[in-house]
């Protein structure tokens, strides 16, 4: 009898923390980077672009696979972290009009230093080093982390976030753009993923884009709207995102005026999958 009681008590002790874990309803969602830690960021983005020029649809498929890493250089008293992102490997494959092209770069030296709030919002971003492929690297948006609410959130709770990004003209893009993204996030709950209990956060959003630029003496204007949806996993123990998947679609109108007048409708579908792994 005595033995049985001890066994029951042992089981009870095991179950209680389990129930507690399962029933935890509120989670603190923020980044808490630790100085000295380093992470690998592996991304794979597939893009499907259709442009209609003179009544003909031109489809461009591309796949960008990149490996970046970042080092946590500092975290101040407010929790703002300074991270040094380094591009490492990049592979760009594109297929259009019957031609396949693959470009591969290894041992790249592009580096960006960013300062992020605990919510993942950028306070500053400085290019530390660049290379001949910086125009491609700039499209990887190195240093952009998915935003978190930076506070405690209940399972099922939603929160909104607006992000306005101003992209300057660059060698890779002759158009300066303002992209406004309105996103609604929902904390879905916790799930076991690869042996770890992670929080799943789903999101849906709308995007609006406008831009202006000049190339080869022609003025270019751009306007677009889109939607996106996806999810990411957050490790509450490490205060860090583990992986994310983002699907977006945009419809864009491009007007070119000057030596040539053109109006080009464009659709763009993008799927992006990213994983973060701490370097041990």
């Amino acid at each position: 009898m005595k033995r049985n009681f001890v066994k029951t008590l042992f089981l009870f002790l095991l179950v209680i923390p389990g129930i507690h874990l399962y029933s935890q309803n509120t989670w603190l969602l923020k980044y808490q980077f630790e100085k000295g830690k380093a992470y690998d960021q592996i991304s794979r983005t597939t893009q499907d672009i259709v442009q209609t020029v003179n009544g003909q649809d031109i489809k461009i498929l591309s796949e960008i696979a990149s490996t970046n890493s970042f080092q946590v250089e500092n975290r101040d008293a407010d929790g703002n972290a300074t991270l040094l992102f380094s591009a490492q490997d990049l592979s760009v494959r594109s297929a259009a009009m019957g031609r396949d092209t693959t470009l591969k770069y290894t041992g790249m030296k592009d580096k960006v230093r960013v300062k992020l709030t605990p919510a993942g919002k950028s306070l500053s971003s400085v290019v530390v080093d660049s290379s001949e492929v910086s125009s491609i690297v700039s499209q990887l948006n190195m240093g952009d982390m998915r935003h978190l609410p930076g506070k405690e959130v209940k399972v099922g709770e939603t929160w909104q976030d607006q992000l306005v990004v101003n992209k300057e003209k660059s060698a890779g893009s002759p158009i300066a753009m303002e992209i406004t993204t309105d996103t609604e996030y929902t904390l879905k709950g916790s799930e076991p993923v690869n042996g770890k209990e992670l929080l799943k956060i789903a999101f849906t959003g709308t995007m609006n884009m406008k831009g202006k630029g000049m190339q080869m003496g022609m003025d270019m204007y751009l306007e677009g709207t889109g939607k996106n949806q996806g999810f990411f996993y957050y490790d509450p123990a490490a205060f860090m995102i583990v992986s994310s998947e983002d699907n977006s679609e945009m419809e864009i109108s491009v007007a070119v005026t000057g030596p040539q007048n053109l109006t080009i409708p464009m659709t763009q579908s993008v799927k992006s999958v990213t994983t973060f792994t701490e370097r041990k």
Binding site: N54, E223, G226, S253, A255, T257, L262, T263
Partner: peptide
């Protein structure tokens, strides 16, 4: 997206000039 994108006609656009016709 199920928008009726069609063609970006200058007549329907707020950002194109009306002479932006090919």
């Amino acid at each position: 997206l199920l928008n009726p994108q069609g063609h970006p006609w200058p007549a329907l656009s707020s950002f194109m000039t009306q002479d932006n016709l090919p």
